[in-house]
Design a protein around this nucleic acid. Structure first.
Lengths: 107, 107
DNA sequence: GACTTACGTAAGTGTCAACTAACGTTCAGG
DNA sequence: CCTGAACGTTAGTTGACACTTACGTAAGTC
């Protein structure tokens, strides 16, 4: 879990995670979406995300398809909820109060 | 928000955050709860947490009382929810499915 | 004013992490 | 077997960061 937190601390990795959130993508396609960085760097980021179990890897011929692991992300979110006491009701009310705020810059 | 993610990446800071979650504490008291580290190190951690707006500072005489900023933590949690699409219903069902899992190591 | 308490801050050090460049590996086609 | 594509991996460098030690500072006491 600690590994997951460190993995998410890097903005680039959060971005990658979003790219492979709803459907899987090959490493080359992911790297192509980042113009200011090498393919190698992305590969290393994918390694970190995989170690943190935030993404899963599937091999298809010479390519490797990556996809977000929603389950692990859920565990991370639950970890944050523990600060509030872990109550599901309390979570709901807090989410609702935040709904009225609507203030956000990063994702 | 990016600052908040980096602040939370450090286990020690998450621990500090838990200590000042439900009531405020002076810096000395917080430092006293960590035997393997200097008071200075804790002070620096408090500075990082304050920059990330994850805690608030209140001065009382010579002491400085710290307390968790629940609002900012809520924003962080919301940032994670965005991955799922930000739906409140979907959030609830996911939290419930995770409830059946009950697998956790870190807090 | 001198002293103590409760802090933050600056300087210096060791470690980790993000990056580039170069190399190794696996799979498919001719 | 040779080539090329799509990857991961291994140096090696640079910057960030967590830490300790030493110092500075504001508030209270005498």
């Amino acid at each position: 879990m600690d590994t997951a937190f460190r993995a998410l601390a890097e903005p680039r990795r959060r971005e990658i995670l979003k790219h492979v959130w709803s459907y899987e993508l090959p490493a080359s396609e992911i790297a192509a979406r980042f113009g200011d960085v090498t393919r190698s760097a992305i590969s290393q980021h994918l390694g970190v995300l995989r170690d943190a179990e935030l993404i899963t890897e599937r091999r298809e011929g010479v390519r490797r398809l990556y996809r977000a692991n929603h389950h692990q992300m859920e565990l991370v979110r639950r970890s944050l909820e523990e600060y509030w006491g872990g109550s599901l009701d309390r979570l709901r009310s807090l989410a609702e109060s935040a709904e009225r705020e609507k203030g956000n810059s990063d994702g």
